[in-house]
Protein backbone atom coordinates (compact mmCIF):
# COMPACT_ATOMS: atom_id res chain seq x y z
CA UNK A 1 0.00 0.00 0.00
CA UNK A 2 2.76 2.42 1.01
CA UNK A 3 4.75 1.70 -2.17
CA UNK A 4 1.80 2.16 -4.55
CA UNK A 5 0.76 5.39 -2.83
CA UNK A 6 4.33 6.72 -3.02
CA UNK A 7 4.63 5.85 -6.71
CA UNK A 8 1.37 7.61 -7.53
CA UNK A 9 2.24 10.73 -5.54
CA UNK A 10 5.72 10.98 -7.00
CA UNK A 11 4.18 11.69 -10.40
CA UNK A 12 2.75 14.93 -8.91
CA UNK A 13 6.32 16.02 -8.16
CA UNK A 14 7.17 16.32 -11.85
CA UNK A 15 4.23 18.70 -12.39
CA UNK A 16 5.17 20.68 -9.29
CA UNK A 17 8.82 21.08 -10.33
CA UNK A 18 7.88 22.16 -13.85
CA UNK A 19 5.21 24.62 -12.64
CA UNK A 20 7.52 26.10 -9.99
CA UNK A 21 10.13 26.92 -12.62
CA UNK A 22 7.43 28.27 -14.95
CA UNK A 23 6.29 30.56 -12.09
CA UNK A 24 9.74 32.12 -11.93
CA UNK A 25 11.46 30.01 -9.26
CA UNK A 26 14.86 28.53 -9.98
CA UNK A 27 15.59 24.81 -9.67
CA UNK A 28 17.04 25.18 -6.14
CA UNK A 29 14.05 27.14 -4.87
CA UNK A 30 11.69 24.45 -6.16
CA UNK A 31 13.80 21.80 -4.41
CA UNK A 32 13.94 23.69 -1.07
CA UNK A 33 10.13 23.87 -1.06
CA UNK A 34 9.85 20.11 -1.54
CA UNK A 35 12.55 19.41 1.05
CA UNK A 36 11.38 21.74 3.83
CA UNK A 37 7.70 22.56 3.26
CA UNK A 38 6.92 19.05 1.96
CA UNK A 39 3.17 19.44 1.50
CA UNK A 40 1.97 19.21 -2.10
CA UNK A 41 -1.15 21.39 -1.92
CA UNK A 42 0.66 24.20 -0.08
CA UNK A 43 3.56 24.09 -2.53
CA UNK A 44 1.26 24.29 -5.56
CA UNK A 45 -0.63 27.15 -3.88
CA UNK A 46 2.51 29.17 -3.13
CA UNK A 47 3.79 28.76 -6.66
CA UNK A 48 0.37 29.47 -8.20
CA UNK A 49 -0.01 32.79 -6.38
CA UNK A 50 3.60 33.80 -7.15
CA UNK A 51 2.95 32.99 -10.83
CA UNK A 52 0.06 35.47 -11.02
CA UNK A 53 1.22 38.14 -8.58
CA UNK A 54 5.01 37.88 -8.55
CA UNK A 55 7.11 38.57 -5.45
CA UNK A 56 4.73 41.43 -4.53
CA UNK A 57 2.10 38.78 -3.74
CA UNK A 58 4.53 37.13 -1.26
CA UNK A 59 2.54 37.73 1.94
CA UNK A 60 -0.70 36.47 0.34
CA UNK A 61 1.16 33.48 -1.09
CA UNK A 62 2.63 32.60 2.32
CA UNK A 63 -0.75 32.97 4.03
CA UNK A 64 -2.52 30.84 1.42
CA UNK A 65 0.08 28.07 1.58
CA UNK A 66 0.06 28.05 5.40
CA UNK A 67 -3.75 27.95 5.63
CA UNK A 68 -3.82 25.11 3.12
CA UNK A 69 -1.30 23.28 5.33
CA UNK A 70 -3.47 23.69 8.44
CA UNK A 71 -5.03 20.27 7.82
CA UNK A 72 -1.58 18.80 8.53
CA UNK A 73 -1.98 19.98 12.15
CA UNK A 74 -5.18 17.93 12.39
CA UNK A 75 -3.35 14.92 10.91
CA UNK A 76 -0.56 15.47 13.45
CA UNK A 77 -3.07 15.35 16.34
CA UNK A 78 -4.38 12.08 14.93
CA UNK A 79 -0.90 10.57 14.44
CA UNK A 80 0.55 11.80 17.77
CA UNK A 81 -0.52 8.82 19.90
CA UNK A 82 0.51 6.37 17.13
CA UNK A 83 4.00 7.83 16.61
CA UNK A 84 4.83 7.69 20.30
CA UNK A 85 7.15 9.79 22.55
CA UNK A 86 10.62 11.27 21.97
CA UNK A 87 11.37 14.77 20.68
CA UNK A 88 13.51 13.75 17.69
CA UNK A 89 11.10 11.05 16.62
CA UNK A 90 8.15 13.46 16.84
CA UNK A 91 10.04 16.15 14.91
CA UNK A 92 10.80 13.68 12.10
CA UNK A 93 7.18 12.48 12.20
CA UNK A 94 5.95 16.10 11.99
CA UNK A 95 7.96 16.65 8.84
CA UNK A 96 6.49 13.50 7.26
CA UNK A 97 2.89 14.27 8.32
CA UNK A 98 0.96 14.75 5.06
CA UNK A 99 -2.25 13.52 3.42
CA UNK A 100 -0.75 10.24 2.22
CA UNK A 101 1.22 9.09 5.29
CA UNK A 102 -1.78 9.84 7.54
CA UNK A 103 -4.21 8.08 5.19
CA UNK A 104 -2.11 4.89 4.97
CA UNK A 105 -1.25 4.99 8.69
CA UNK A 106 -4.82 5.33 9.92
CA UNK A 107 -6.05 2.70 7.44
CA UNK A 108 -4.09 -0.08 9.21
CA UNK A 109 -5.45 -2.35 11.92
CA UNK A 110 -3.00 -2.69 14.84
CA UNK A 111 -0.96 0.20 16.35
CA UNK A 112 2.22 -1.53 15.14
CA UNK A 113 0.94 -1.65 11.54
CA UNK A 114 -0.30 1.93 11.80
CA UNK A 115 3.16 3.11 12.89
CA UNK A 116 4.84 1.12 10.13
CA UNK A 117 2.40 2.34 7.45
CA UNK A 118 2.85 5.97 8.48
CA UNK A 119 6.67 5.93 8.50
CA UNK A 120 7.07 3.82 5.37
CA UNK A 121 4.66 5.95 3.34
CA UNK A 122 6.10 9.21 4.69
CA UNK A 123 9.70 8.24 3.89
CA UNK A 124 8.93 6.79 0.43
CA UNK A 125 6.82 9.80 -0.58
CA UNK A 126 9.52 12.17 0.74
CA UNK A 127 12.22 10.52 -1.37
CA UNK A 128 10.01 10.18 -4.48
CA UNK A 129 8.56 13.68 -4.21
CA UNK A 130 11.97 15.33 -3.93
CA UNK A 131 13.54 13.34 -6.78
CA UNK A 132 10.62 14.04 -9.11
CA UNK A 133 10.53 17.72 -8.11
CA UNK A 134 14.16 18.00 -9.23
CA UNK A 135 13.37 16.16 -12.48
CA UNK A 136 10.32 18.37 -13.14
CA UNK A 137 12.24 21.57 -12.39
CA UNK A 138 15.03 20.60 -14.77
CA UNK A 139 12.40 19.70 -17.39
CA UNK A 140 10.60 23.04 -16.86
CA UNK A 141 13.91 24.82 -17.31
CA UNK A 142 14.30 23.13 -20.69
CA UNK A 143 10.73 23.84 -21.80
CA UNK A 144 10.89 27.62 -21.35
CA UNK A 145 7.89 29.78 -22.33
CA UNK A 146 4.93 29.08 -20.06
CA UNK A 147 1.81 29.88 -22.00
CA UNK A 148 3.12 28.40 -25.25
CA UNK A 149 3.20 24.98 -23.66
CA UNK A 150 0.01 25.40 -21.70
CA UNK A 151 1.64 25.09 -18.28
CA UNK A 152 -0.75 27.69 -16.84
CA UNK A 153 -3.63 25.38 -17.75
CA UNK A 154 -1.66 22.52 -16.20
CA UNK A 155 -1.58 24.46 -12.90
CA UNK A 156 -5.37 24.83 -12.91
CA UNK A 157 -5.73 21.12 -13.68
CA UNK A 158 -3.32 20.23 -10.85
CA UNK A 159 -5.48 22.10 -8.30
CA UNK A 160 -8.57 20.39 -9.69
CA UNK A 161 -6.84 17.03 -9.27
CA UNK A 162 -6.04 17.77 -5.63
CA UNK A 163 -9.62 18.96 -5.05
CA UNK A 164 -11.41 16.12 -6.86
CA UNK A 165 -11.18 13.33 -4.22
CA UNK A 166 -12.46 15.75 -1.54
CA UNK A 167 -15.77 16.43 -3.31
CA UNK A 168 -17.36 13.40 -1.70
CA UNK A 169 -20.61 14.91 -0.42
CA UNK A 170 -22.89 17.93 -0.76
CA UNK A 171 -21.18 20.11 1.86
CA UNK A 172 -17.68 20.16 0.30
CA UNK A 173 -19.18 20.62 -3.18
CA UNK A 174 -21.20 23.62 -1.99
CA UNK A 175 -18.13 25.09 -0.27
CA UNK A 176 -16.03 24.56 -3.41
CA UNK A 177 -18.55 26.29 -5.67
CA UNK A 178 -19.01 29.21 -3.26
CA UNK A 179 -15.25 29.61 -2.82
CA UNK A 180 -14.67 29.62 -6.59
CA UNK A 181 -17.39 32.28 -7.07
CA UNK A 182 -16.02 34.46 -4.25
CA UNK A 183 -12.43 34.25 -5.56
CA UNK A 184 -13.46 35.05 -9.15
CA UNK A 185 -15.74 37.92 -8.12
CA UNK A 186 -12.98 39.53 -6.03
CA UNK A 187 -10.23 39.12 -8.63
CA UNK A 188 -10.69 42.55 -10.34
CA UNK A 189 -10.91 44.39 -7.01
CA UNK A 190 -8.08 43.16 -4.77
CA UNK A 191 -4.39 42.25 -5.21
CA UNK A 192 -3.49 38.78 -6.60
CA UNK A 193 -3.51 36.13 -3.88
CA UNK A 194 -6.12 37.87 -1.72
CA UNK A 195 -9.18 36.43 -3.56
CA UNK A 196 -7.97 32.94 -2.58
CA UNK A 197 -7.64 33.98 1.08
CA UNK A 198 -11.11 35.57 1.04
CA UNK A 199 -12.52 32.26 -0.18
CA UNK A 200 -11.19 30.64 3.00
CA UNK A 201 -13.81 32.60 4.94
CA UNK A 202 -16.50 30.49 3.23
CA UNK A 203 -14.95 27.35 4.70
CA UNK A 204 -14.65 28.81 8.21
CA UNK A 205 -18.29 29.98 8.24
CA UNK A 206 -19.65 26.68 6.90
CA UNK A 207 -17.30 24.65 9.11
CA UNK A 208 -18.26 26.45 12.33
CA UNK A 209 -22.01 26.44 11.67
CA UNK A 210 -21.99 23.07 9.85
CA UNK A 211 -24.39 24.29 7.14
CA UNK A 212 -25.50 21.65 4.68
CA UNK A 213 -25.37 18.89 7.28
CA UNK A 214 -28.70 19.68 8.94
CA UNK A 215 -29.43 17.61 12.08
CA UNK A 216 -26.26 15.51 12.13
CA UNK A 217 -24.65 16.85 15.29
CA UNK A 218 -22.02 14.12 15.30
CA UNK A 219 -20.54 13.54 11.84
CA UNK A 220 -19.53 10.22 10.32
CA UNK A 221 -15.94 10.74 11.44
Amino acid sequence: MAVSVAAAVSAYGVSFGALAVAAGLDVWQACVLSLVMFSGGSQFALVGVLASGGAAAGPAAIAGATLLGSRNAIYAMRMGPIVGPGILRRLAAAHLTIDESTAVGTAQGTPEEQRRGFWLTGILVFVGWNLTTLAGALLGDLLGDVSRYGLDAAAAAAFLGLLWPRLSSLQPVAVAVAAAVVATALTPWVAPGLPVLAAAVVAVVVGLTNWGRGGTRRGAR
Binding site: A45, Q171, V177, A179
Partner: peptide, 22 residues
Protein backbone atom coordinates in the same frame (compact mmCIF):
# COMPACT_ATOMS: atom_id res chain seq x y z
CA UNK B 1 -11.23 18.85 12.00
CA UNK B 2 -14.25 19.89 9.91
CA UNK B 3 -13.02 23.48 9.47
CA UNK B 4 -9.56 22.27 8.37
CA UNK B 5 -11.10 19.86 5.87
CA UNK B 6 -13.40 22.49 4.35
CA UNK B 7 -10.56 25.05 4.38
CA UNK B 8 -8.61 22.73 2.10
CA UNK B 9 -11.60 22.38 -0.23
CA UNK B 10 -12.26 26.15 -0.35
CA UNK B 11 -8.64 27.12 -0.99
CA UNK B 12 -8.17 24.51 -3.72
CA UNK B 13 -11.45 25.53 -5.40
CA UNK B 14 -10.45 29.20 -5.26
CA UNK B 15 -7.08 28.30 -6.77
CA UNK B 16 -8.77 26.35 -9.59
CA UNK B 17 -10.96 29.40 -10.32
CA UNK B 18 -8.18 32.00 -10.26
CA UNK B 19 -5.70 29.84 -12.19
CA UNK B 20 -8.35 29.29 -14.87
CA UNK B 21 -9.97 32.73 -15.11
CA UNK B 22 -7.58 35.37 -13.75
Amino acid sequence: SRVAGLLTVALLAALVATQTLA
